[in-house]
Each structure stands twice: as structure tokens, then as C-alpha cells.
Design a binder for these strands. Structure first.
Length: 908
RNA sequence: GGUCGCAUAGCUCAGCUGGUUAGAGCGCACGGUUCACAUCCGUGAGGUCCCAGGUUCAAAUCCUGGUGCGACCACCA
């Protein structure tokens, strides 16, 4: 026997050694050759790579627990399971972190220069980059750590470069001047997805633009007699870049002045008044200032109308001749104040009203993003989107929950080109060079760094200074991590992967783009199933975040209650894609579900180990003939639990799978079977009964520990390893590599029915005792009448247990119940009556009424079913199994009716 | 404006194919500690399954409409 187990579960003592053992024995490693040569069935999950600088938060905790549950389950199903870990270099995020770091030394990135800065980031990443992966180990993730990847490592950079060149050669990457989202703090372009709209309270400034020359009557006039138009803007400073004013072509108010010009205040420019259907005559004054360089709609309109664009927001603004000297070099918000002040001074400020609107913010630093015209690199997305869209439409890729399918489709249907250049230093440098020879001006896009211009032979080449969007490496993750573009064994064995588990926030950023990349570069979907988790929120429903300070540190939870408690709690708390609520202020209450369950598992296991004397038990099949009712029942329930857990895992109903295991373990195994067993485990018990009990107990524990292992890997293995050996069975060293149980083998409906009857009897006795305030220790006697077969069998089989569990002294069968006798009385489900001679409170009439109602309802159901079966059309058309089910229903209803009638009759 | 989702116990949620008495955890009330576990055991209270119609022998479940809440996308001069 093993050393004594502590009465309270202490996860800290078992987790680290177990994890080390798993790792040292290579259980995490996946073998490509087993797939390729031996035909093993692969199961692959690639981790959504966390930012390399990240520390674990509950979102990761949820996400990676679910991935590990799937991986462990599939591994036990005998598949060659690969859970591939890694991190993302996270361009903006990481660069920001390091910039803040050097700021504490009073330096900027420009002080260091590009190379030194990038070196500095590498140092930082090397020092801290594996933190999050270490933390994933602490929550038990069974990743193949030997395959850990990083998006900026050489192999993955090769993949990125290959992809860039291929897309460029195919004409899907282009460089162009478009309005992009510019973060003035990060000083870089952002993709549309990286600019997050937020409701913001702002102001709408109404500005007067004087019309040049004579104006028709009816327009308002300035004191000097000039007519003017009023335009509204939330960003008055952009008026310096106005190149037109637009009105709706059908707007009567302005029809006469279309084609005329206005004098742009504060400048010496005049700009035309144009007509465009984009303008909403209902909004504001119906006249819109057009600033093509700083507004996407204006940009589009300017292209239609052939209007010039003036960029007033370049870092070189002070050189911009279009901006009057007083406004040059100002911050945009200072410029705004100045412009408004000057309008007011000139009598051109019409009014200012409060205005709530949503304004895009940088997803990394939350600064208000400025739309800005600039030259960037783009990927043409439409051709890439088509196969990705087809895949969801024909069901090749499946989203769970299903509602995300439409969200995904919708985005792909309206896809816009992807701005992939970033004005950062940390990332994959764009593999483009420009020939310095003014005569030549060649653009070179190459897999290998060029040394001279292939066109003119000139050696003066300059590489594009920008780097690529982080997601330009992550969209290749499912195959770049397996060695692409090399033709590797891993790629052959493990692509495509199977399941992707991630947060819905990155459906567009990442999931959709991975699917596109999979088709484009591998000719095949990267995965079939996408499971989108919910969001972890606090009790007020707020998303957990560092800035709100409402996060929960998973490692703290692991230290307090153990990884299994954490895992069980998040799994049980997350319905299909629903948000998970946790209270950061009360970890004890939040994680009590998992902690208490882990403790229960521990103690039930401990009980079993203490009570089984030998270190070897017989197999269940060997004691088949001496199994008692309770044994057959618990094995039947285990079989049912196995079926349930498996079925729920197959449909990503993690919470249901967890609940099924929990219910079996606590509600059936611990609450009933172990209690029923206690008399049989004592000294002096019949040897055959004891052997049957021990065999069954070990089998039941073995089964449920396997079912729980994917969710609670540590405690299940710790106990499983200590279980007595079963004669003639060779068990593997760890439950991790043990097989997943099969169901449909030990279902025993008779045992289920008999045990239910006994459980009901015990429940009724307890209820009556509680109702009549009989102290739990006081033995009682019971009278039973009309004991049906199931209960009779159960009583004969488990009478010792009944006496023990319900503190029953005498049992009188078929004792006459004297009318009006003092006592507690209950009618059991099967029609038997229970009488405890205690008091005289019983309402026969009420009970009769209830049963009568029940009988009527049942009659209705039975008539309906019989009518269906009697309907010729139904029986002619319905499939055989449907008809069979109807027949079973009818049968069942008739049985119930008969039983109810008997009950009613028994009440007199 | 477009698309989608949700509404069940005090709280957070299950409830899959319409069918026994609508469940769980937490919380609450009452009682219980020699003999695995007080991180425990037993019992109980607490539900117009958002509202109104419809289909059906039968609706929390399916359909229509309404109300309330939320998410995403677009727009927001």
C-alpha cells in the first residue's frame, strides 16, 4: 500500500512532481512517424499564441484549459495528439512595453537607433518571453513543449517572407495611397480591425464658410454682406485640409450655388461647392466640408469628384505650405483650440453643440486614431476570401456556437483590403528594396536580401523601413509552426489541424485570416472545428482587464486551490460559448465549486484506498456472478456517465461533460455507493461479497477518474496510480496514457430500477424524519405495504445498508395501516406505502387529487400517441424508428397509467 | 441603419429530439461532527420558465408579434 494520504487535498504536493513525471516520460510529445508509418489518427490543436510579453490571465486560463481537455481526451481515445505551443511577437504591444522600459532610463527608441532598439527588444523577450509558457504548465497544459514556436523565429520568418513574395508575385500585395488609421502615439498605421470604435462625448462645431462673389438670396449673410454656408464638423482643425464643400444634388437650398466657390477661412484658398449623393441633407445643415486626406468618406468622394487631397497631418507638417504658419507644428488638439478661437474671432463660428459619437481608438494604447492619407502596403483580400467563405457555406469549417458562422460570413462578404505595413521596428521587416538610382527606381521584392539592383545593377539599395502587421505572421500559424515552406514530416502528419479554440474577439484578426491562408498556401482548410469561448467577466459583467484591475491571477488560484480546482471551475462555468462570471474580490466563493469537488474526489479515493486491504483486486468479470445489487447499479451508472461525458465532449458541451462526471462521482458514487458499501467492507464480511465490492469499487473509481482526467488531470492521476492492481490487467504507468472508457457494456436497467426504489425509500424516510423532527440518531421502525418487485428486491439485497443509512430498526412488511393511526406516511413511486408510526398527520384527499390529475394528463398523452399510431398516413410515411419510438411511448404511458390506477386504488 | 443572440430560483446558469414531479452550483433556513471528507452530511424554502397570440392530446422547448437587454458590422460631416 502507498503512504497515507492527507485528509485534505493538498494540490501543491502532487502537481509539480506529476507534471515533471509526465514530461520526463514523453507523454506530451507527438510522433509524426506514428501517423505517417503506423497510420495513427492525428489530433492537433495549435495554441492561439499569446503575446510573448503576456502574463497569464483568466482568459488564457479558460481557453487553454478547454484546449487541454480536448487534447487529453483525444489522446486517451488513442489518437496521436499534438497540442502545439508558442508565442506571438506582438509588434505594437511588445514595442510599447520596451519603449516604456527605456523611457524609465530617460531614453527613446530614436536615441538607441533601430538596430540597438531591436536588440534591446530581443534581450527583453529572451529574458521574459517564456513566462507565459511556464504558467501554462502550472495549469497542466499537455503541450508538446519540444515543438514550441515563436512568430519571429527564423523558420517562421522564412514562412512570412515566402508568403509576402508569393502574394506580391500574384499581384495580391500592392502599395498605395489610401486613408488608413493612424495612431499618433504609436506613430504607425493600424488595420481597420485594430481601430476600435468607442462612444465618446464630443462637440459638433458649426463653421461658416463665406461664398465667393454674388450669392442668391435666401442664404444667411455675414455683417460684411457676404453670404455663407454652414458646415458641421467634430474635428474643426481638419478644415485646413478642406478641398471642397459638398451638398446633396437634390437639395433645393443649395442647388443654385453648386459649382460656385467658398473662401476657406483662415487660409487664402478658395474651394469648390460640389454635389454628391453621399451627403445626407437631413444631417446638420446639409453641407459637408470635404477633407480627402483625413476622412475615408471624403477620400472616396474626392476620387469620384476628382478633388485634390491635402495632407495637413504629416510629421513634417511644419513644412506643409498649405497650412498657415500659425498652425504648423501644433498638436492636433491644440490646433483644434486655435482654429476654433480664430473662427470665433472672425465671427465665423456659428454654434457648438454637444455630440456623442463613436470614435476609433488604438486597440493597443487607446489613443484616438486619426484617419490619414498615406502610402502603405495592402493585401487584396477578395480573392483570398472566396474559398474561405465557401468553406463555411458548405460546412467544411464549423463554428461552435453556430451563430458565429453568420458573423464570419458577413465579414468575408464585405471584406476590405488589409493594411499590412506598420511603422514600427519590432517585427518582420518588409522584404522590399528600392533602387537608389534615380534613373531606375526599381522596386525589388525578394526571398533573399538583394545586393544589387537586378534591373540597373546599381548597388545603392534601400530596404523599406516598415515592418509587417503581427497578424501577417499569425495567419500562417497552423502550418508555419509545422515547418512550412519546407516539406516536413510534421506537416505531412499534422496538417490540417483539427480544432481551434479561441476568443471571438479575434475571429476576424486571426481565425478568418488563418482559413484564408490555409487555402491559399496549403490548398486546404487549416482546421474543421472552431470553438469560440465566452469572455471572462467580473460580477458586474465587465470584461476582466489589467487597466480595470478586476483580473484574477490564475496562478494565485493554483496556489490556493490547485490547478484542478481552477480547471473544473472554468469548465463547469462555461456553457456553450457563454461568458464566465467570476468574482475577483472573492476567490474562495468563485472557485469553491472546483475546490470542493477536488477535495471530494480526494477523500472518496482516500476512503477506497484505506478500505481495500490487498494491493490487488479481482476483475469485475471474474466476480460477475457474485456482484450484488449496488455493484451492478454503480457499474450501470458509470456506463451511463461514460456515455454522457463522451457525447457532451463530442459536441463541445464541456460544462455538461463536467457536470455529468461531477454528478456521477458525488451524487452516485460518493453519496450512495460508498455508503451502501460500508457494511460490506467491515471485518467479518462474507469473502465473496467483499471481493465483489472491492472489484466494483476499483472499477468504478478507475472509470470515473478516467472520465474526469481531461478536466482534472492532476488529482485523477495521483489517485489512479495508487489504485490496487486488477488481476490479469496490465495498466499503463499514468492515467494520461490510459484508454478512454467505452460505454454500452454494463447498463443494467433492472439494477437501476431497483436501486432507484431503494433510494427513494431512504429519501422518503429521511424526509419524514426531517418533517416530523425525529433526531437523526433515533432509530425508527417502518411499516411497508404493497412493496413492489423493485423495492422488494432492493430491500432483500441492501437491507443492511438501509438500516445503516436511514437508522431503521424494525422493518415490518405488509403491516396493516390502521386508519387514522398516528404516524408519517408516504406513497412510493412504485405504489408501495411507507408508514412510520410517529404522528397522525396525513392528507389522503390531497394525495388522491394529485394522483387523479396525473392520471388524466397521462390519459391525454396516451390518446394522442395512440391516435398517431392509428393514423395510416403517419404509419405509412414515418421512418420505422420513429414509429418504434411512438410505440415505446404508448407502452410506457400504459404502464404508468396502470401503476397510477393501482396507487389510487390503494388510497381507497 | 444591417446582422445575430439572450430573457428559466435571490445570484450565475443547465435544460440536446416538444413528453414523469423544470435541474445544478452558490446563497438562504433548520438539524447533524467517534468511525473518508465541516472544503462534510441530511432536510427544506424559493419558479406566472419576460408578455400576448398560434400549432399540438401535450410548449420552458416550435411559430408569429411585442417588450427589455446584449453582441458584432457599417455609419456618425
Amino acid at each position: 500500500m502507498s503512504e497515507p494520504l492527507s485528509p485534505q487535498y493538498e494540490p501543491g504536493l502532487i502537481e509539480a512532481p506529476l507534471f515533471r513525471d509526465w514530461e520526463e516520460n514523453g507523454y506530451f510529445r507527438a510522433d509524426a512517424e506514428r501517423v505517417i508509418q503506423d497510420g495513427a489518427d492525428p489530433y492537433v490543436i495549435v495554441i492561439p499564441p499569446p503575446n510573448v510579453t503576456a502574463v497569464l490571465h483568466m482568459g488564457h486560463g479558460l481557453n487553454n484549459t478547454l484546449q487541454d481537455v480536448l487534447t487529453r481526451w483525444q489522446r486517451m481515445q488513442g489518437r496521436e495528439a499534438l497540442y502545439l505551443p508558442g508565442t506571438d511577437h506582438a509588434g505594437i504591444a511588445t514595442q510599447n512595453v520596451v519603449e516604456r522600459l527605456i523611457a524609465t532610463e530617460g531614453k527613446t527608441r530614436d536615441d538607441l537607433g533601430r538596430d540597438a532598439f531591436v536588440d534591446r527588444v530581443w534581450t527583453f523577450v529572451d529574458e521574459t518571453g517564456s513566462t507565459i509558457l511556464q504558467q501554462l504548465r502550472a495549469i497542466g497544459c499537455s503541450c508538446d513543449w519540444s515543438r514550441t514556436r515563436f512568430t519571429l523565429e527564423p523558420d517562421l520568418s522564412t514562412a512570412v517572407r515566402e508568403v509576402f513574395v508569393r502574394l506580391y508575385e500574384k499581384g495580391l500585395i500592392y502599395r498605395g495611397n489610401y486613408i488608413i488609421n493612424w495612431c499618433p502615439r504609436c506613430l504607425t498605421a493600424l488595420s481597420d480591425e485594430e481601430a476600435e470604435p468607442e462612444e465618446t462625448n464630443g462637440r459638433l462645431y458649426h463653421l461658416r464658410y463665406p461664398i465667393v462673389g454674388d450669392a442668391p438670396a435666401g442664404l444667411p449673410r455675414l455683417p460684411d454682406g457676404r453670404a455663407y454656408l454652414v458646415v458641421a464638423t467634430t474635428r474643426p482643425e481638419t478644415m485646413l485640409g478642406d478641398t471642397a464643400v459638398a451638398v446633396h444634388p437634390d437639395d433645393e437650398r443649395y442647388r443654385a450655388i453648386v459649382g460656385r466657390e467658398v473662401a476657406l477661412p483662415l487660409t487664402d484658398r478658395t474651394i469648390p461647392i460640389v454635389a454628391d449623393t453621399f451627403v445626407d441633407p437631413e444631417f446638420g445643415t446639409g453641407a459637408v466640408k470635404i477633407t480627402p486626406a483625413h476622412d475615408p468618406n471624403d477620400f472616396e468622394m474626392a476620387r469620384r469628384q476628382n478633388i485634390a487631397a491635402i495632407d495637413i497631418l504629416t510629421p513634417d507638417a511644419h513644412l506643409n505650405r498649405n497650412v498657415p504658419a500659425v498652425y504648423q507644428g501644433l498638436d492636433r488638439f491644440d490646433a483644434r483650440k486655435r482654429v476654433v478661437k480664430d473662427f470665433e474671432a472672425a465671427g465665423l463660428l456659428d454654434q457648438v453643440v454637444d455630440h456623442t459619437h463613436s470614435v476609433p481608438h488604438c486597440y493597443r494604447c487607446d489613443t484616438i486614431v486619426e484617419p490619414r492619407l498615406s502610402e502603405q502596403w495592402f493585401v487584396k483580400m477578395k480573392p483570398l476570401a472566396e474559398p474561405a467563405l465557401a468553406a463555411s457555406r458548405n460546412g467544411d469549417v464549423r463554428f461552435t456556437p453556430d451563430r458565429w458562422t453568420k458573423v464570419y460570413d458577413n465579414w468575408l462578404e464585405n471584406i476590405r483590403d488589409w493594411c499590412i505595413s506598420r511603422q514600427l521596428w519590432w517585427g518582420h521587416r518588409i522584404p522590399v528594396w528600392y533602387c537608389g538610382n534615380a534613373e531606375c527606381g526599381e522596386t525589388i521584392v525578394a526571398r533573399e536580401d538583394p545586393t544589387s539592383c537586378p534591373k540597373c545593377g546599381g548597388a545603392s539599395l534601400t530596404q523599406d523601413p516598415d515592418v509587417l502587421d503581427t497578424w501577417f505572421s499569425s495567419w500562417l500559424w497552423p502550418f508555419s509552426t509545422l515547418g512550412w515552406p519546407q516539406d516536413t514530416r510534421d506537416l505531412k502528419a499534422f496538417y490540417p489541424t483539427n480544432t481551434l479554440v479561441t476568443a471571438p474577439e479575434i475571429l476576424f484578426f486571426w481565425v478568418a485570416r488563418m482559413i484564408m491562408a490555409g487555402f491559399e498556401f496549403m490548398g486546404e482548410l487549416p482546421f474543421r472545428d472552431v470553438y469560440l469561448t465566452g469572455t471572462v467577466r467580473d460580477t458586474q459583467g465587465r470584461k476582466m482587464s489589467k487597466s480595470l484591475g478586476n483580473g484574477i491571477d490564475p496562478l494565485e488560484v493554483v496556489n490556493l486551490y490547485g490547478a484542478d480546482a481552477l480547471r473544473y471551475t472554468v469548465v463547469a462555468g462555461s456553457g456553450l460559448g457563454t461568458d464566465v462570471y467570476m468574482d475577483p474580490a472573492n476567490l474562495e466563493a468563485t472557485f469553491s465549486v472546483g475546490r470542493n469537488f477536488a477535495n471530494k474526489v480526494w477523500n472518496a479515493g482516500r476512503f477506497a484506498l484505506m478500505n481495500i486491504q490487498s494491493d490487488e483486486v479481482k476483475s469485475v468479470s471474474e466476480v460477475q456472478d457474485t456482484l450484488e445489487l449496488a455493484d451492478r447499479w454503480i457499474l450501470s451508472r458509470l456506463d451511463a456517465a461514460t456515455e454522457e461525458v463522451t457525447r457532451h465532449l463530442e459536441s463541445f458541451r464541456f460544462h455538461e461533460a463536467a457536470a455529468a462526471g461531477y454528478h456521477f462521482f458525488w451524487g452516485e458514487l460518493a453519496d450512495w455507493y460508498l455508503e451502501l458499501l460500508k457494511p460490506r467492507l467491515q471485518e467479518g464480511t462474507d469473502v465473496a461479497s467483499r471481493e465483489a465490492a472491492e472489484a466494483t469499487l476499483v472499477a468504478a473509481l478507475d472509470g470515473i477518474l478516467r472520465l474526469l482526467h481531461p478536466v482534472m488531470p492532476f488529482i485523477t492521476d495521483a489517485l489512479w496510480r495508487r489504485l490496487p492492481r486488477v488481476q490479469g490487467v496490465d495498466a499503463p504507468a499514468s492515467i494520461m496514457i490510459a484508454s478512454w472508457p467505452l460505454s454500452g457494456i454494463r447498463r443494467d436497467d433492472a439494477a437501476d430500477a431497483q436501486m432507484s426504489a431503494l433510494m427513494e425509500l431512504i429519501g422518503e424516510i429521511r424526509t419524514l424524519r426531517a418533517e416530523y423532527n425525529v433526531a437523526p440518531g433515533t432509530p425508527i421502525s417502518i411499516h411497508l405495504r404493497d412493496v413492489h418487485h423493485n423495492l422488494g428486491t432492493a430491500l432483500r439485497a441492501e437491507e443492511r445498508a438501509l438500516r445503516r443509512m436511514a437508522r431503521v430498526g424494525g422493518i415490518e412488511h405488509d403491516a396493516p395501516v390502521v386508519a387514522g393511526a398516528a404516524g408519517a406516511h408516504a406513497v412510493l413511486r412504485g405504489g408501495a406505502e411507507l408508514f412510520i408510526p410517529l404522528a397522525d398527520i396525513i392528507d389522503l384527499a390531497q394525495e388522491r387529487e394529485r394522483l387523479q390529475k396525473e392520471l388524466e394528463r397521462l390519459g391525454g398523452m396516451l390518446r394522442g400517441t395512440e391516435a398517431k399510431l392509428g393514423n395510416e398516413q403517419f404509419t405509412a410515411r414515418a421512418p420505422e424508428d420513429v414509429i418504434e419510438r411512438e410505440r415505446e411511448k404508448a407502452e410506457n404511458f400504459r404502464d404508468q397509467r396502470d401503476r397510477l390506477s393501482t396507487k389510487l386504488a390503494a388510497l381507497g
